[in-house]
Computed example of a mutant assay.
Amino acid sequence: MSTEKQRQQGGIAETFRVAVQALIIALVIRTFLFQSFNIPSESMESTLLVGDYLFLSKYSYGYTHYSLPFSPPLFSGRIFGSEPKPGDVVVFRLPSDDSVDFIKRVIGLPGDRIQMIDGQLYINGTAVKRERVDDYVDRDEGPRPVRVKRWRETLPNGVSYDTLDRIERSEYDNTPVYAVPPGHFFAMGDNRDNSADSRVPPARGGVGYVPFENLIGQAKVIFFSIGNDAPAWQVWHWPSSVRWNRLFTGIH
């Protein structure tokens, strides 16, 4: 075999080896460290917007078979499990259809009693502190900006975040008491009148209680954000459509 052919074959083998190593590293990172996720709906406004791209921390709550690529059912339960804290923004598999990812905020832990009364959140019979803040200006609803009433809630553990109140006396402004069962969590969207969350049973297209096993990770940082319904890959729209002020901001 000629030296030139040997060199070519050696180059192909080296390229293949590097590609395999890169794939293994990418799989390890995605499985155990970080995973990307993009926001498809308005249920978490104004914290998260349609067109936001996030990194999730996979190690925050430990690992389940949902942590693996394609989610093969190799084991049940969690490994190195750690419960989310109230106020964490989490991505989870929808209990009624585990092929679908949802993102919401954890509001209730196992054993908590959750209720909405006149649009105010109650946890274990106590009203969660909230204060009126500046309106949220929604520029994606049509040709004219829409002003939306906004509140800042502070959970008993001190975590604060903003919620939107789009509709006076909406269907889920008054609810029964939800008793969170063991091994489950109660999750809600920050856009309270536009979120099919744990207030809505699966039979009605909602989430219901979220099993601990279904948690995938905690939303940590927005690494990219684009508006105007522009796909992220259309780079020629970036100058006018990228929300530059949201890039590399933490999620609270």
Score class of each variant (00 low, 15 high):
1 M>K: 11
3 T>D: 15
4 E>Q: 12
6 Q>M: 12
8 Q>E: 15
11 G>A: 07
15 T>P: 02
23 L>M: 15
24 I>W: 04
25 I>N: 05
27 L>K: 08
28 V>K: 10
33 L>T: 09
41 S>L: 08
44 M>T: 02
44 M>P: 03
45 E>H: 05
46 S>D: 06
50 V>C: 09
52 D>K: 10
52 D>S: 10
53 Y>N: 12
54 L>I: 10
55 F>V: 07
58 K>L: 00
58 K>C: 00
59 Y>G: 04
63 Y>Q: 05
67 S>C: 05
74 L>A: 09
80 F>M: 15
82 S>W: 07
83 E>I: 01
85 K>P: 03
85 K>R: 15
86 P>H: 06
88 D>S: 14
89 V>A: 11
90 V>P: 07
92 F>K: 00
97 D>A: 14
105 R>L: 01
107 I>Y: 04
108 G>A: 03
116 M>Y: 00
117 I>D: 05
117 I>M: 10
118 D>H: 12
118 D>A: 14
118 D>F: 13
119 G>W: 02
120 Q>G: 07
126 T>K: 12
129 K>P: 04
131 E>Y: 09
134 D>I: 03
138 D>P: 10
139 R>Y: 11
141 E>D: 04
151 W>V: 06
152 R>W: 02
153 E>W: 04
156 P>N: 13
157 N>P: 01
159 V>R: 12
160 S>Y: 01
160 S>L: 01
161 Y>K: 02
164 L>Y: 00
165 D>N: 10
165 D>V: 09
167 I>P: 01
170 S>P: 05
171 E>P: 02
173 D>E: 08
174 N>K: 03
176 P>C: 07
176 P>G: 15
181 P>F: 10
181 P>K: 14
184 H>W: 03
187 A>R: 04
190 D>Q: 03
193 D>G: 12
194 N>A: 01
195 S>V: 06
196 A>D: 06
202 P>M: 07
206 G>T: 09
207 V>R: 00
209 Y>F: 15
211 P>C: 04
214 N>Q: 02
216 I>D: 11
221 V>P: 07
224 F>D: 09
230 A>M: 13
231 P>M: 06
232 A>R: 11
233 W>T: 10
236 W>M: 07
238 W>F: 04
239 P>W: 14
245 N>I: 04
247 L>F: 06
247 L>S: 08
247 L>A: 07
248 F>N: 06
249 T>F: 02
250 G>H: 04
252 H>M: 07
